[in-house]
Write a protein that binds this DNA or RNA. Sequence first.
RNA 1: CGCGGGGUGGAGCAGCCUGGUAGCUCGCAAGGCUCAUAACCUUGAGGUCGUCCGUUCAAAUCGGACCCCCGCAACCA
Length: 499
Amino acid sequence: MPGETMDSFYVTTPIYYVNGLPHIGHSYTTIAADVLSRHKRKLGWDVFFLTGTDEHGQKVVRAAQEKNMTPQEFVDGIIPRFREAWKKLEISYDDFIRTTEPRHIRAVQNFLQELQDKGELSLGEYEGLYCVPCEVFWTDKQAESGLCPDCRRPVERIKETNYFFKLSRHQEWLISHIAKHPDFIQPESRRNEVLAFLKENTLTDLCISRPKTRLSWGIPLPFSPAHVTYVWFDALINYIAALGYPGEKERFEKFWPSSLHLIGKDILRQHAVIWPIMLHAVGMEPPKRIYAHGWWQVGQEKMSKSRGNVVDPLALIDEFGIDIYRYFLLRDVPFGLDGVFSRASLIQRFNGDLANDLGNLVFRTLTMAEKYFDGRVPALQKERLKSPLASEILLKLDKLPALVDAGLERLDFIAALEGIWSVIGNCNKYVEETKPWNLKKEGRQEDLEDFLAVLITAIRCVAGELEPFMPQTAQKILSQIKDDHVVKGDPLFPRIEEE
RNA sequence: CGCGGGGUGGAGCAGCCUGGUAGCUCGCAAGGCUCAUAACCUUGAGGUCGUCCGUUCAAAUCGGACCCCCGCAACCA
């Protein structure tokens, strides 16, 4: 539509590298993106939520070899596991891109050709210590002893001809871009980190190709069929490939200006340095915002595929439910910081926040609706209210959407949830203060109606705000409160008794 | 002198940028209530805010020195 001004929102997760199964870290970023997407959609924004998989490169080849499969067979076998995991977690992505898809390959090749045409690439020699059996390059420091850190066999110094991208040419531009856009890299500590890095170092030329003779599992360079594209270079382009680059200008222009890349802090350099420079080099705008979140640790150790201590989200979901998992990840630890995962803290959140506060409030309220009004829901008559606390609750409800929105805008999921829980707390207090059982005995029907009307109103509103975070729970609550009557169900979150 | 993060009641954290009665969640203790999932509500105990020095009328908060803890090959969110 010409002159369209509709608010659009583009959010991405990294495309996950598929040499292993989905773990808590993948689900963390993905759930965060899902919450933001659901929230924006609710407000009427046009949302495009992208996730996907990164399928090329040496690691995938090796993982496939270990299973006696071709790389294609291997990735085709893993991708459904990701899709299933996201389905189970109620992830509402709009698109799932695979780097082995034709649309992505076309985008990458087009992008490379543009760079080549603009004279941004040059042919050069790559030299390094190479372990032939492992097919891996090591830096001098890594292979100090002259042995491969992995297999302990001797490495050899080899040279190969590759294409290089001169990042340093755009370094000054990037520094000033970051300086001019305080929100470009978040949180602030990460922004400072990148800025300091850029000011203190000259970026080295990025080797963007691999000889096909050494690695064939990749996207061929359009101008040199003897080379395939370096996997990171290939991967980053997914963000624009999914928007229809290079063909669909309209879609691209609609979503790209509002782009938000959610990433883990480990891949900050690629997203905050290489990616913006790649785009700038071909004359495209950098992403609007990059947010690097923290890591989950297990006990004192960091979680990693190689240590084998990864937390399996699906097992946790089966045991505790989807919504507590989604809630826990976003509520327990500030998004930008590292956190420690433990069953105990998850159970504590479950029992404390979900069972005692929220679940119990809903349950006791519906019980009273049944007991005092045969399940009928009295209408709210604001002008009749006498209790200051009731007024406070209604006031908070008015402000709640804006509060949640502001929190999510900053990716401060905790602030948003605390805002919601503050209302829940007030409601529980309101019950104690009002002592409806006394009103009943005294036959003060009108007061009792007002009381219940306030609670029901609050619960409806809370459920609405909760929807992006806990879609199932929100749905369950709303299905128990019809327009004029309630249909009480089982407790939403039966307490978990352990030990 | 490598870099970064951190040291606040029993546990986990906020507050520090923009100095001025130390706050939150959990746990613990006592009380209340009965609509409710031994849930809910109230109150309380518990901290010289890592150490020392300095700036100031006043410092968890600013400056300096020091001590201790965590992470820092690659892969990873």
